[in-house]
């Protein structure tokens, strides 16, 4: 069966909906994401857009719906427009970000307290969690940090993409996402057990164990290299933990 490329829906059959970008009304196709709608309306992105894939956190958007007191948020590149929504993008939020020499830290709660004492101004209003486009339980990781649980904070904040919306809503003026980033760094570097096999591997590399193999590859002409690559022994998808290749000379 051949794959037929999907027809682009033509403008005539696309349903158009009104949206308000920074107060100005535009008619845009109902199927577009906010980001595409903004471009459709004629804006050109020079900021507030990065990966277009929902991971870089550059495109945080705040919007409201008519007759609803709630503040809604979303990533412009991921959120589909809704009729009558009125929105603005927030490409940057000026939140306190302290400088530190990471090598001098050791992973104790006091270090976070010292770098971000405003942590203790949290009042648990939960505005941060409500506004997070990634559904991170922001208030909970701040609560964890207040009691010195860096590991819990690192885990709870794992999906954070540093968009800064939490800080924009915080009545305690905390830069939650920067504090969480420090927590994840400390957790990764000092609190999670070291991967031993990685250290063995690095030592092997340093000791020159793979130099001959590498030299062999480098010495091949393109044809031999291609053939070697294509005929390489591959780990079958169903392989268990204890699988090893037939040719063990390169291990």
């Amino acid at each position: 069966m051949s794959i037929v490329p999907q027809e682009e829906t033509t403008a005539t059959e696309t349903k158009m909906v009104p949206i308000y970008i920074m107060g100005k009304r535009y008619e845009v196709p109902a199927t577009l994401t906010i980001m595409k709608a903004i471009e459709y309306a004629g804006y050109k992105y020079i900021r507030g857009c990065g990966c277009r894939g929902g991971v870089c956190g550059a495109c945080s958007t705040v919007y409201r719906k008519p007759g609803d007191y709630k503040i809604y948020t979303g990533l412009a590149c991921q959120t589909v427009v809704e009729p009558e929504m009125y929105l603005t993008q927030m490409p940057f939020y000026p939140a306190n970000r302290t400088t530190y020499d990471f090598g001098e830290l050791t992973g104790t709660p006091d270090e976070i307290n010292r770098l971000y004492p405003e942590l203790f101004r949290c009042v648990a209003c939960n505005a941060c969690t409500k506004v997070c486009p990634m559904d991170v339980q922001v208030m909970d990781y701040i609560a964890a940090l207040k009691r010195g649980d860096i590991q819990a904070a690192a885990e709870i904040s794992f999906d954070c993409i540093q968009c800064g919306l939490c800080a924009s809503r915080c009545m305690g003026e905390l830069p939650q996402y920067h504090i969480a980033q420090l927590a994840r760094r400390l957790n990764g570097a000092y609190l999670t057990p070291k991967a031993e096999h990685l250290q063995t591997m690095c030592a092997n590399i340093d000791a020159g164990r793979y130099d001959p193999g590498l030299a062999e590859l480098k010495g091949m002409d393109l044809e031999t290299l291609r053939n070697t690559y294509q005929s390489r022994e591959m780990e079958p998808a169903s392989a268990g933990e204890d699988w090893t290749p037939q040719d063990k000379s390169h291990l």
């Binding site: 009042v123 648990a124 939960n126 208030m139 909970d140 609560a143 207040k146 009691r147 009545m171």
Partner: peptide
Amino acid sequence: ERWNCCGAVYSLADDDLIHIVAPVR
């Protein structure tokens, strides 16, 4: 299983309820 800082001091202002939210949670 889940808890947050209670705020340590109770708000003494009649018109300030936000600081009571934490212990109530």
